[in-house]
Amino acid sequence: MSTAAIRALPRETLVNAVLALALLAAPLIAQMLDEPFYVSLATRVAILALAGVGLNLALGYGGMVSFGHAAFFGLGGYVAGITALHAFEGSDFMTWPWSVGGSDQLLVVWSVAAVVVALVALAIGAISLRTSGVYFIMITLAFAQMIYYLAISLPTYGGEDGLSIYLRNQLPLGDSNDPLTFFFVCYGLLLAALFLSARLVAAPFGVALQCARMNETRLATSGIAPFPVKLTAFVISAVITGIAGALFADLNGFVGPSMLSWHRSGEIMIFVILGGVGRLFAPLAGAALFILLESLIGGMTDRWQLFLGIMLLAVVLFARGGLIGLLAGKVRHD
């Protein structure tokens, strides 16, 4: 592309491209400098950003302030952990009415995670979306807490101690134990989710979803019932976050109740808000900033969240468009 053609692009597209390339470059450079820790750090950013991409669909575009997305993140993680456990032990997940064993294949894990999370999100959404505002926030939180305590009360799967994944789940091609390969997998899924979001948001579905955020009355009056649109978006959003959870468990080789806790819900929400609510690449910008703060300032002081808090305050008070808004200007609506 010529420089003139690049200049003609909207600024937000450029900012997004730079962010995506920076995340791609970071682990490559780290690998060259033989700093494996930073490869794993970049993988964390990609995974948490993916979780945020899921939430952004519900929160940013649909105006559904879910404070329970950790439930989907953690469920995805537990699916990865439980299938790996049974594959490792050679035991069955259930024997009646038919026998279901474990699996150590990532493609299987992701598919199962997607189905499980979709079903749970369908149930949670169908009930929660009958409320709105503060009640919606609280009811999604309540559901997430129920799942949190359920996980704690399951000794078979580690209870409070969680579950170790001794062997990372495998890919059909390539070695998922290689840190850089695993990064590329996470990065690829992140880009795929971003692309999917971009298409969804511009399609009739996304336009209806955004209208549901601005004015449900207008949507219904146009002949489109808001509830099914919002519920579908909620489920898609949950599935994306759930897949991120499965990746996160495989990255850490561990899944525990902390993945389901409300702190995690808040963290995913912070990525979206720091990056800029309803901006496509906000979760990536937010997650990257979050992880950078955590590892840079967190290396100097345990009180690094104080700085995070100040930054969050600044964004909420002065820069409603978040990081992306700061870099790319106000949102352009059609």
Binding site: A203, P204, G223, I224, P228
Partner: peptide
């Protein structure tokens, strides 16, 4: 768009 096939077109 409601008349044109509704909201469930995703692509």
């Amino acid at each position: 768009q409601a008349r044109e096939g509704g909201a469930f077109r995703f692509w």
